[in-house]
Design a protein around this nucleic acid. Sequence first.
DNA 1: GTGAAAGCGCTAACAG
DNA 2: CTGTTAGCGCTTTCAC
Lengths: 349, 349
Amino acid sequence: MPRMAQDRQKQDRQKQGGAGKRVTMAAVGRIAGVSQVTVSRALSDPSKVSPETLRRIRDAIEATGFVPNAIAGALASQRSNLVTALIPSIINITYSAFIRTFSQRMREAGYQILLSETGFDPAEEESVIAAHLSRRPDAMLLTGIHHSARAKRQLLGAGIPVVEVWDITDTPIDLCVGFSHPEAARAVADHLVARGHRAAATVTASDERAGRRRDAFAARFTALTGHPVPDHDTRGPASIGAGRAGLAALLDNEAFRAGVVFCSSDLLAHGIMIEARARGLRVPRDIAVMGFGDQDFARVLDPPLTTVRIDRDRLGQVAADALLGRIACREDGQAISDIGFRIIDRGTA
Amino acid sequence: MPRMAQDRQKQDRQKQGGAGKRVTMAAVGRIAGVSQVTVSRALSDPSKVSPETLRRIRDAIEATGFVPNAIAGALASQRSNLVTALIPSIINITYSAFIRTFSQRMREAGYQILLSETGFDPAEEESVIAAHLSRRPDAMLLTGIHHSARAKRQLLGAGIPVVEVWDITDTPIDLCVGFSHPEAARAVADHLVARGHRAAATVTASDERAGRRRDAFAARFTALTGHPVPDHDTRGPASIGAGRAGLAALLDNEAFRAGVVFCSSDLLAHGIMIEARARGLRVPRDIAVMGFGDQDFARVLDPPLTTVRIDRDRLGQVAADALLGRIACREDGQAISDIGFRIIDRGTA
DNA sequence: GTGAAAGCGCTAACAG
DNA sequence: CTGTTAGCGCTTTCAC
């Protein structure tokens, strides 16, 4: 900030009066007739302070509107009560829904969550990780299992519990909770072939995990049926519009005319249903659709969407518990949790 | 297998010094052969340090994996470079989409965002505000204009810039950017009546602002047509499923048989389209639908959804700029910004 | 049950 | 250009 602006700001804050001096524990103590430490104790463990003193301190806090300075507390105690989380996208319900469960669980345990988006970009992630680490979080949540070497080093150096979610690996940085994407995709291929499908295509959003599902699906489907699996890459985030465009492209290219489309998300699948209907094609008779994620709308579409359920709430919960366990130094909890997946057979495939 | 990975992990942490000594500026300085302040300067303003010294410091940082301690920095400088934001729901795209724009803008200016949900509950909001204030943010964003008296007092006492978004008032705490919900709702009523609609109903999610829109809409529509406007309250968050259930309830109650349904969100409107079609009703011939929000899917539905557009990106941008302006002490920026709304006429009403 | 003293790791003056 | 000296507002530890 330019020097002048800074000076002016200082003056303004002082003029504000109420804002000039923020209330400190020392000030509260002065009013209550005790020392600063006693105020600290009254807040952190009231039982260590006599009832009478406690009352005076509480009155003083109320009168001054004192709000403790967590920054100073964190510096002194070396505990920030902060947990940071990185997700690819905040507007993608897949991630935001499980972050909500995770946050709630952590908040109940007294932690606040610092959340950032990384936008599916490893370089971006690296810089965000460093920024987060500078806040000295007590633990950290990362999405996915691929991180730059530098980021891993810093994470290890931080000496805090780290949980990687939404994927699974034998070699996590620390903790890991998720499921195997290739395995899920192969299960989908097996399922669709068992149901009699002999032609398939995929529509896939820009997401490394989605890409691995597509590859595993195509490999298995082709192995089983001998037919290639054309793919449409949305080159962007999943959306209903991208799904419509995806089916349109597949059909117009004549790479695909009928069969089942396996999508990397329910949103895409929904778009495919709309596009199919707009073209006078019947779902699932002409075009069958398989989603991924089992978002809340999947069951209320018409026909209801066949998809793969990932228990996001459980994922958030298990991730939080794993971290909490590590923080409490219970090293006994298992480091790797596979929460699995489940094919939900409904009306579109 | 987990066991081995776990053991390996444990060793790694111990070797790393686990909870051991984190690298400090003093340590980096020692290695580079300079004092701690010089390291600080090298980081905050490299031009103040000789090139040769800078090189040695950078090498030392690289070698040690040093990550600056923002906690200590914040305590010393009285600037946290943290901005906190409260939104009702993280999984509601309405809010998460604009938070993304806001965050990006703030990040470019060097701020990190601490985000929390308040879940539409004022009491919850109050406690979250206090928790956020304890982190000594440099600014704060609040959703809506209704806050508890205690919360307002603490906010004022904090002496930081505060912006209230998604609504508008003549008496903001500090800054305010949004639009008038009753005004938007009345404009919708005028528009629908002008298009010939004489019967209307509403489907409304649990959200104070949505409720105010419904009330203003019903009052205007009735004043214009003489007909009452039945409402279905979803008693919960907006969703496609809630929209379907809403139309079903309206129709089954016989409070409503044909006409236009004004929804508090596009998601609800989408559900209504699905339910109407499932019942063999034509949209918009039998049931017309008006959404709210103009989410990305609105234009790709079939028929495309008529709705009200709120420029969320602009909202996020203006909110960020307002805050940044205040932080830089440019008191000239206007305190209240009305970003307006726009009726987007498409195929459903 | 309460207080005094000693930092936590950094930034902000002020010297040199 | 670089170093020294003071804190920032708490928690911790040790006395009393």
